[in-house]
Design a binder for these strands. Structure first.
Length: 425
RNA sequence: GUGGCCGUAGCUCAGUUGGCUAGAGCGCCUGGUUGUGGUCCAGGAGGUCGGGGGUUCGAAACCCCUCGGUCACCCCA
């Protein structure tokens, strides 16, 4: 293949029609649901001060080695980073604008991580998500999780399981961490080399290891649920009964820890069973009761989730759901008399709210009919010398068997709109 | 960042132990008597075989480097 001079950078890609249309309808579906749940959209900058993301956790890979960072041209230069996630940005915005809590917002946009690309793992990827700041009512947790679950249903995914855990709070987490550290230390020599390193940095994350030699040790490790404070245990119980009241199935996953340090109490993950196990997390989230404070704001609890659009679409492919939307072109104008009629007819069709397209460059009738077919249009409007002479157009049904007939130009647009409405379009 | 596999037309792929002007299907374009698509038939365009270097009389095939993809680790959406 002739090597193009430039290509999309490693880990990024172009999303072209028709796939781009499918993505857009996925986004739209999310926006509709989030609106129904009472969330408003926040559009925040694609990059932030590096410090915003450092608060996410100094011990996470996301901060230590997966950041796309840069310095601006100021004096002194400001250390900026492309956002690797959006929760920190939302919290930064909350602290900056001080909206009245509870603040319920959603977002949809690209995020960046400097990682080794793989199927379902990109350096630029898209997430949609929600955050609720300013309440620790367990019913907010339930509402958030329910929104995620209903979204997967709305896009036709049936094989998505919800994994749920509680990571405790500042009152009880230290006790658990100590117990876990002591335990892992006692079996240190049996752990994989990589996990021994992880143990130094963040014992909790050892539970996430997928290495075979670690599994037995992990299976026998103490569990957070056994260390929950009375308060956290009660909160967790209320989240569970709320989900049950809504008929949302979940699975308690006592070793579910997530990659970001800021999570407390409720933690969950959506796993697409139709995808390979290693990249099957299509979404995740939880409570982050200390994050707003870490960013310089008042003590404010928060909960939210992020869903990976790229992976959701892969899961849809695997489940053969969420097919592309039908073509927005209703009518294709075939003009074999020069093309100026196509120009004005398209204008009048679009004027009454229809989708209309035409060919360029004076192509043969056969070629234009072919394009009409491919455009997905329901009708073709044909203009030749005959039609021009009589002030009419030939209206041809491309999808049914009603053939074609002449229609006066003056009533063409209205006539087509009526026909499409009658057919429930 | 580490390791395995892969890289031939726009897409999916064939190309036997290195040897004729590198092929197929799909897609695209043009025709099939002068205005009709979705079927059919016939022609055509399109590739310096990811890129660079090397071995050889000769390389898409072998070696090295590099870029990209993919899988695993890691991490996570």
């Amino acid at each position: 293949m002739a090597e193009p001079k430039f290509r999309a950078p490693k880990g990024t890609r172009d999303i072209l029609p028709p796939e781009s249309a499918r993505r857009r309808s996925l986004s739209d579906a999310f926006a509709v649901l989030a609106g129904q749940w009472g969330f408003g959209e926040v559009v925040s900058p694609m990059f932030e001060d590096m410090g915003v993301f450092k608060r996410v956790g100094e011990s996470t890979d996301l901060v230590t080695k997966e950041m796309f960072d840069l310095f601006d041209k100021g004096d002194p230069p400001q250390h900026l980073a492309l956002r690797p996630e959006l929760t920190a940005s939302i919290c930064r915005a909350y602290v900056e604008h001080r909206p009245v809590p509870p603040w319920k917002v959603w977002y949809d946009g690209p995020q960046f991580r400097y990682e080794q690309p793989q199927a379902g793992r990109y350096r630029q990827f898209t997430q949609v998500g929600v955050e609720v700041l300013g309440t620790d009512d367990p019913q907010a947790d339930v509402d958030v999780i329910a929104l995620g679950s209903r979204f997967f249903e709305a896009v036709g995914l049936t094989k998505v399981s919800l994994l749920l855990n509680s990571l405790g709070d500042p009152a009880c987490r230290p006790d658990y961490l100590k117990a876990l550290s002591d335990y892992l230390d006692s079996r240190r020599s049996e752990l994989s080399a990589q996990s021994q390193v992880t143990l130094e940095r963040n014992p909790l994350r050892v539970l996430d290891s997928k290495r075979r030699e670690d599994q037995t040790i992990i299976d026998e490790a103490p569990l957070m649920v056994d260390f929950l404070s009375e308060e956290s245990a009660a909160h967790f119980q209320q989240v569970r009964s709320g989900l049950e009241a809504l008929g949302i199935e979940y699975e308690i996953s006592p070793r579910l820890v997530r990659g970001l340090d800021y999570y407390t109490r409720t933690t969950f993950e959506f796993a697409a069973d139709a995808l390979e196990a290693s990249q099957n997390a299509v979404g995740g989230g939880g409570r982050y009761d200390g994050l707003v404070e870490a960013l310089g704001g008042p003590d404010t609890p928060g909960i939210g989730f992020a869903l990976g659009v790229d992976r959701i679409l892969l899961a849809c492919n695997a489940e053969q759901s969420f097919e592309a939307a039908p073509s927005p072109v209703d009518v294709f104008v075939v003009d074999v008399a020069g093309g100026s009629s196509a120009l004005t007819i398209c204008e009048s069709l679009r004027g009454v709210g229809l989708g209309a397209d035409r060919a360029y460059g004076g192509r043969s009738m056969k070629a234009q009919m072919k394009l009409a077919d491919r455009s997905g249009a329901t009708y073709a409007v044909i203009i030749g010398d005959d039609e021009i002479a009589s002030g009419e157009a030939t209206l041809r049904d491309l999808r049914g068997d009603t053939g074609q007939r002449r229609v006066p130009l003056a009533v063409l647009a209205g006539e087509i709109r009526r026909l499409l409405q009658d057919n429930g379009v």
